[in-house]
Amino acid sequence: MRKSLLKPAAFFLSLILSFPVTSLAAGSDPALEKEIQRIAAAAQGKVGIAAVVIETGKTVSLNGDDRFPMQSVYKMPIGMAVLRAVDQGRLKLDQKVPVTKADYVGERQHSPLRDAHPNGTETTVRELLRYNVLESDGSACDVLLRLIGGGPAVTAYLEQNGVKGVRVINTEKEIGSAEDVQYRNWATPNEALALLKLLHQGGSLSAESRKLMLKLMTDTQTGLKRIRGLLPPGTAVAHKTGTSQTVNGVTAATNDIGIVTLPDGRHLAIAVFVSDARAGSEQREKVIAEISKAVWDAWI
């Protein structure tokens, strides 16, 4: 992790500076902004949040232009880039793809695909997408990255579609090789909203591809105590989480971004990133859930 490279004095200074909640966007809801500040302090780290009601443009953000490591949140834009390649005819959902043992991420990284087929397998692009998004599988993610030309190809796809503040650079295997690599794959909360709006509005994907991506994100069982944790039962949430390892008591990333369908049919896009936090796992997830609930309560 980057902080391990700092001298002790610099480390403690950076840790102290990460705690205060600064850079709140100006808005018309000071009560909501104050509540977000209060909730975020419990993370004992840096929190970035951006939320918008897509149909009305009502927005709130905290540290919205700062960079946060995405971890597995980056599997969402990777999935979208793959589906764009499908729409363009460069890939087919039913095409067979060989997966070898060399494609598998390390044992400390999450990979149901590797666990189910330790000696390798052959599967389809559709199944790799399911593993990548719904199960947050690192090995499937790396195979898909290989098929579409790597992280820079994903970043180029995003920039071509107006998403300027999301960077996909490394494979999952590379991210797992050293703690500081994850910081190269970052997003700002405000640009995470741009990514969510791109998916919602379908500007870069066919109707069929958009529907598949949203279904995978809605069906995912990761992060059930994050954005959706305190929302009313049955609320539709299409989301993607990201979580790092905890090293020396500090967790680099506990994230969730998604599109929430509101009771009146409108859509709330929300991105919450908790970075370099000393709070425990339960508390970090609670911060995300409480911020999401605070926005819901204020706007619904």
Rank of each mutant, 00 (worst) to 15 (best):
M1I: 04
R2C: 07
K7D: 05
K7H: 13
A9Q: 12
A10G: 10
F11E: 07
S14I: 02
L17H: 03
F19H: 07
A25F: 00
G27C: 11
Q37S: 14
I39D: 02
V47A: 06
V47G: 02
I54S: 13
T59G: 00
T59W: 02
V60L: 00
F68Y: 14
S72K: 03
S72F: 08
K75L: 07
K75Y: 01
M76A: 07
P77H: 10
M80D: 07
V82L: 05
Q88A: 14
Q88D: 12
Q88Y: 00
G89H: 08
K92T: 15
V97P: 14
V97S: 09
V99Q: 05
K101D: 07
G120W: 04
G120I: 08
T121Y: 10
N132M: 05
L134T: 05
L134Y: 09
E135D: 04
D137V: 05
G138D: 04
S139H: 08
G149L: 09
A153I: 08
Y157D: 09
Y157E: 02
N161I: 14
K164F: 10
T171A: 10
E174K: 12
E174A: 06
E179I: 06
D180W: 03
Y183I: 00
R184S: 14
N185V: 05
N185T: 14
E191T: 12
L195Q: 10
K197V: 15
K197P: 08
L199G: 06
Q201N: 15
G202R: 08
S204D: 09
L205N: 03
S209F: 07
M213L: 15
M213I: 13
D219L: 04
Q221N: 02
T222W: 14
G223W: 04
P233E: 03
G234K: 06
T246R: 15
T254F: 01
T254K: 03
D256A: 04
D256F: 12
D256E: 04
I257A: 00
I257Q: 00
I259A: 03
L262R: 02
L268M: 14
F273G: 06
S281Y: 10
E282I: 13
R284F: 10
E285V: 05
K286Y: 01
K286M: 02
A289V: 12
A294R: 04
D297V: 02
A298I: 00
W299E: 07
W299A: 13
